[in-house]
């Protein structure tokens, strides 16, 4: 019998610090698989966020750069421009990309930087203990909105993908999810497209991945995936946006 599924070379053979059922583990694996399949492990440079995935460089076996919270797209801009032959991608959570880093994200996109942005949207702050995020749903509880998000006070879930899609320089935006094997395969396809765009020099690509945070949603891992299917993906519709 032949092995048809296993760990890819770009993914270190170590256990991760992520909670049971966390989407980061899946997303890390998908990114590593694509990088191996595209044969770019030796050329890729990742920019890690500040958030649960801050030590993503402990799990990927290729060059990685840390960025101050929210600044990954600025760091990536410079690395890609001084090393255009390398493949540069950022991997950011919703706090990193859509709260403190919104300005850097929008301007990197508006300049059409030829980078790939992997945006993990789990609608909550994970690393710091479940605070309200820009993408938290109305009514969804958070440690800093204990009665749930209220539009009048906290505003509405931020649609970064739609905002960036409106920028002429943005080449590709797709929103995908991890809530089932089928959706995970779609996520992989979208990520691959985003990396291929960069290899072809096509410009700014972003993949928004709806990802489970069982711990701070207060659900079991399976219930969290179902919640994405039934609730989160209604507020954040899946599919190709640009």
């Amino acid at each position: 019998m032949e092995k048809i599924f296993g760990r890819s070379e770009s993914l270190r053979d170590v256990s991760t610090h992520y909670c049971p059922g966390c989407g980061h583990g899946i997303a890390h694996r998908l990114v590593a698989e694509i990088i191996d399949e595209l044969g770019i492990r030796q050329k890729v440079i990742a920019i890690a966020p500040v958030g649960c995935a801050v030590i993503a460089y402990d799990y990927w076996d290729f060059d990685c750069c840390e960025a101050a919270h929210g600044r990954a797209c600025a760091v990536a801009t410079a690395i890609k421009r001084v090393r255009p032959q390398n493949i540069v991608f950022t991997y950011q959570g919703d706090g990193d990309l859509a709260a403190i880093g919104t300005n850097e994200t929008i301007h990197a996109a508006n300049r059409g930087e030829n980078i790939t942005v992997v945006f993990i949207n789990n609608a909550i702050y994970g690393m710091t203990g479940g605070q309200l995020a820009p993408t938290t749903l109305i009514g969804q509880k958070a440690s800093t909105a204990q009665k749930g998000r209220v539009a009048k006070e906290h505003g509405y879930p931020l649609k970064i993908s739609e905002i960036l899609a409106s920028l002429p320089a943005v080449k590709y935006v797709e929103r995908v999810s991890l809530h089932s094997p089928q959706e995970i395969l779609k996520t992989k396809k979208a990520l691959k497209q985003a990396f291929q765009n960069q290899i072809a020099g096509a410009g700014f690509s972003l993949v928004e991945i709806l990802s489970p945070c069982a711990t701070y949603w207060g659900m079991s891992p399976k219930a969290a995936l179902d919640w994405i299917r039934d609730v989160l993906s209604k507020e954040f519709p899946l599919g190709r946006i640009k």
Partner: peptide, 14 residues
């Protein structure tokens, strides 16, 4: 950070 090529991966971090 130049792309790890055949060397071990570099990480720029604090």
């Amino acid at each position: 950070l130049t792309g790890c090529g055949n060397r071990p991966a570099n990480v720029a971090k604090s």
